[in-house]
């Protein structure tokens, strides 16, 4: 693909976030192009999580702009950004632990279904989503992440790895254009990581994925493009191979 010709899906311009005297994200111009898995790596405290928090609207920027599909989204609430298709999956699982898995996914499904229905239904914004449609969609997404049959189980009682998968199912159900996965493999066992890597590969066929990851093996297996952050700024960008051979990155981060 010719990089110059591709239109970016998401871009930030001079994006900055300050916490008192600390500059967590400093004048970042980040570009994300469609149809590939983009990974952000960097040492702890490099500003990765703050950057994606700014992108999905959990944190307000101190200055700078963000645009998504050519529209300025800087002033949009986090809810509006989800509606636009930017969906964030938490680093620490954040499922509704007292509710059943069905309810967890249904919550996400029903908004997406309703948004689709609003355009076509005669009732417009007063249309209601039928529970049968929701049930069908919930099963579909649970199946997609390999959690079929857990509908009635209370989410908090699932093993940790399964909670992460449930979280992914909730994100998929929201109908993302851009799925942000924050440290998806953290705390998972070897076999689970392999399983999740395959899942992400599968997802990336239809959804753009932005990955924040510590596990270099996962990054180099999955990513088409890597951005390295350090001290709140972008240190380097390129293909995984380019990054591996980049001296600045080796010095500051890879450490060998």
């Amino acid at each position: 693909m010719d990089e110059m010709a591709a239109v970016e899906l998401l871009s930030t311009h001079g994006l900055t976030r300050q916490y008192g005297g600390l500059i967590a994200v400093n004048e970042v111009d980040f570009k994300l192009y469609p149809d590939r898995i983009h990974a952000i790596i960097g040492p702890n405290g490099a500003g990765k999580t703050t950057l994606v928090s700014l992108i999905c609207g959990r944190t307000a920027p101190s200055s700078g702009r963000i645009s998504f599909k050519g529209n300025d989204i800087t002033g949009l609430s986090s809810a509006k950004r989800v509606q636009a298709g930017i969906v964030y999956t938490f680093q620490v699982t954040s499922v509704f632990s007292n509710l059943s898995c069905y309810e967890n996914v249904a919550l996400s499904v029903q908004r997406n279904l309703r948004a689709q229905q609003k355009g076509t239904s005669l009732l417009g914004k007063w249309s209601m989503v039928s529970e049968a449609d929701i049930e069908q969609a919930v099963s579909k997404y649970l199946l997609e992440v390999g959690l079929e049959g857990v509908e009635a189980q209370i989410a908090g009682t699932l093993p940790y790895g399964h909670q992460k998968l449930l979280e992914v199912a909730m994100s998929l159900a929201a109908g993302p254009k851009l799925l942000i996965l924050d440290e998806p493999t953290q705390g998972l066992a070897e076999a689970e990581i392999e399983n999740l890597t395959q899942l992400i590969q599968e997802i990336s066929k239809s959804v753009n994925v932005l990955l924040i990851e510590h596990n270099m093996e996962v990054v180099f297996n999955l990513a088409d493009h890597v951005t390295v952050m350090d001290n709140g700024s972008i240190l380097a960008e390129g293909t995984p191979t380019e990054i591996e051979n980049n001296h600045a990155v080796q010095a500051s981060y890879l450490g060998n």
Binding site: C56, R58, S77, S78, A79, Q83, F96, L107, N112, A174
Partner: peptide, 17 residues
């Protein structure tokens, strides 16, 4: 119910809480 259980998560599922 989702708001009762976890307000900020509900917001991040795209609902204006």
């Amino acid at each position: 119910i989702a708001i009762r259980e976890n307000e900020s998560r509900t917001q991040l599922l795209g609902y204006n809480v």
